[in-house]
């Protein structure tokens, strides 16, 4: 059996990133996610795996360092909480436009504005519908446990490189701050230079004599070419919708009612399901794990045999729009 640890969600995602062979973390502190950088700084992975951990001068600088690292084919990441993620949106849009892989962790707090440091899920729209300008999508993973915070670091990098697209782990203050049992993956080596040349031929790492130079940009002044580029992005997002939908069903087999909830709300809803079942009410929990792509088809499959759906989220109602569109 692997070693079991008691960790905060923030610590787990940080440790899992080191183990996933991450090359660089660039961030700026903000509650309730500061333990991510704190943990990384304490672990000093630059002495073991060679991973860089850097506190940037601002969120804007951090996301642009990610842009730079990702351009070189490196596994790079940043993390922040809601107001900080807002500051990063321009960079995220550029990274999506330039088709670069990276991992972004958002440990959501209440808002709008500077809001509160307490947990919330009010960045659903921002994460799944854009956030920055232009036609783009993030692949959004919503962990509901400390174990998933750890698991999604490795999965996030894998998907980011598969689609050359930013992946966001959309967590919240509960999942970030709570401690649970976690089983960590084995240490993966960082990409070697040869592997980067082999696996990511688009990366900018110095022009060899036998190849054209690579250009990373999100700018194309030729509007026809830009339109083709956006259509190509659309095809990529459709492919994600086809292949990457993830969800969990709890007590759904005989359910007459369905609660749809993600992240920490799903945990609280699971308790509600237990309490309702004890009273003989047949309730099930449907938990989207990918928020984009949203599990539309599996949710639609329930509509013929259930009496109603209750959407539970720590916001004024954001995911409910995707639930309505799905059913």
């Amino acid at each position: 059996m692997k070693e079991l640890k008691l960790m905060k969600g923030n610590e787990a995602v940080a440790e899992a990133a080191i183990r996933a062979g991450c090359d660089g973390y660039f961030g700026y502190p903000i509650t309730p996610q500061s333990e991510i950088m704190e943990y990384l700084m304490y672990q000093e992975p630059y002495k073991t795996t060679g991973m860089i951990v850097l506190q940037a001068e601002s969120e804007v600088a951090a996301i642009n360092m990610v842009y730079g690292g990702a351009s070189c084919g490196k596994r790079v990441m940043t993390s922040s909480s809601s107001p900080g993620i807002s500051l990063k949106q321009e960079g995220i849009s550029y990274i999506a436009g330039a088709e670069l892989p990276c991992l972004i962790v958002n440990v959501v707090r209440g808002g709008p504005g500077l809001g509160t440091i307490q947990p919330a899920q009010s960045d659903y729209f921002q994460s799944t519908k854009g956030g920055g300008h232009g036609d783009y999508r993030l692949l959004v993973l919503a962990p509901s446990s400390v174990q998933e915070m750890a698991d999604f670091a490795g999965l996030g990098f894998e998907l980011a490189f598969k689609y050359r697209n930013p992946v966001m782990i959309l967590s919240d203050g509960v999942i970030g701050q709570m401690m649970e049992k976690v089983e960590l993956a084995e240490q993966q080596p960082r990409f070697t230079e040869a592997e980067i040349r082999e696996n990511t031929p688009w990366a900018t790492m110095g022009k060899p004599n036998d190849k054209e130079r690579n250009i990373i940009t999100s700018l194309d002044l030729d509007s026809h070419k830009q339109e083709r580029h956006v259509a190509h992005l659309r095809d990529k997002y459709l492919e994600m919708e086809e292949n990457e939908v993830r969800y969990e069903e709890i007590n759904c087999e005989d359910a007459e009612y369905l609660i749809v909830a993600y992240g920490s709300s799903a945990r609280i809803s699971q308790k509600a399901v237990e309490l309702a079942r004890a009273k003989g009410i047949k309730v099930g929990l449907f938990r989207p794990i990918t928020l984009f792509p949203f599990p539309k088809k599996p949710l639609l499959a329930y509509t013929n045999r259930i009496k109603g759906i209750l959407t539970v989220e720590m916001s004024l109602g954001q995911m409910i729009e995707d639930v309505k569109l799905a059913v």
Binding site: T31, P32, I117, G173, V174, Q177, M178, M179, E180
Partner: peptide, 8 residues
């Protein structure tokens, strides 16, 4: 187990 602190 779970451990959920007050924080802030």
């Amino acid at each position: 187990v779970s451990w959920m602190p007050s924080y802030g």
